[in-house]
Design a protein around this nucleic acid. Sequence first.
RNA 1: GGGGAGGUUCCCGAGUGGUCAAAGGGGGCAGACUGUAAAUCUGUUGCUUCGGCUUCGAAGGUUCAAAUCCUUCUCUCCCCA
Length: 371
Amino acid sequence: MLDIQYRDESCRGRGGIMTLPHGQVEIPAFMPVGTNGTVKAVKHKSVEDMGYKLILGNTYHLYLRPGMEVIKAAGGLHKFSSWEHNILTDSGGFQVFSLAPFRKIKEEGVRFRSHIDGAYHVFTPEKVVEIQETLGSDIQMVLDVCTPPGISHKEAVKSLEITTRWARRARERWLQCHDEYQGKLFGIIQGNFFEDLRKRSAEEILELDTPGIAIGGLSVGETPEMFRDYLHYTAQFLPEDKPRYVMGIGTPDYMLEAVEAGIDMFDCVYPTRIARNGTCLTRDGLLALKNEKFRLDQEPIDPHCTCPVCQTYSRSYLRHLFKAKEILGPMLVTEHNLHFLYVFMEEVRQALREGRFLSYKKAYLDRYRRR
RNA sequence: GGGGAGGUUCCCGAGUGGUCAAAGGGGGCAGACUGUAAAUCUGUUGCUUCGGCUUCGAAGGUUCAAAUCCUUCUCUCCCCA
């Protein structure tokens, strides 16, 4: 499943090929998020043309709407959404976290209310595996309990222990999936912001020997310093021979930090969300298109960018689209941001291959932080 | 020509004696956004040397006090001729 082809000896960074049911994926890889079976504001064809081979979908959202009957009838999420490459589905664990006011965690599973109609539903670790099997996920995540910074050690232990027990149950159920289903299961390390608990969670999750390992519970409101510290601390426990995934990060600085720590995969709504809100990723940092200073600016978003948007449109025009609330604005900036990150990851892989990742990182951040 | 309604801070619009630099929208400006309840949310929007100063069509008046009351002028809209 994982073919590590090169390492950067100056850090833990590495790269290669991950082979999944729907084809190969170059790692380290950023994965665009397509919660509802669509990467918002952009066609799957465009995402594919940029080079992406692995995107996310969401168990929670797709289960609630359109519902499994619809996706089953289509023959799975790939056919339903016309995406022929790989899909990683999140388990709903993050919704257990982000929709906290509407849920109750018990040993059996989590009872929650739909954000759509308020109806009660229950997710158990087993049920979530079944849903993801029906979706046809190439990588499925175990149901976990994600927690925010600031909780007590005692609360963190409790969440960690449930996460481990749920992971065991998920794995048992996953082993019983139909033979034709080839999707991989990833365990998730929790432990909040306590080193002893991070270590303990890592040990317990690794013991399950899932095909891949994720670090969860980061970028949930902690400071960048805490993110960095707990990322590196947790990453040291990850095995060499399995894909390593840090959930929920997507700014260039965080991804560079993760690559340095030896992480292979990341996903984030950030680039697509800020795109819809008028903010572009550039080599010089963020560019808020709605700002008055771009009113007459005839330059493209990023003069060095090779994306179709930068070949065609000016900041002035794109600013106008956002001020006029035209749907094309979010569409074009989403395309730019995703293209930007794909090229960014190609550069990262190249730097790793050539053993100069740390200098690449430093130069990138020096420039990125300048604006 | 006759009758009626009204002119409020960039726009629309609330306010009919003090608690009004003036509600609420819109627009403008700025910020946020990291396993998507997000084409969303938040802040700000007369000037200021922060003590005040100047605003509610214009001018004058009443009052301790006026966007609010009175007089004249002016402009807009509606109805009837």
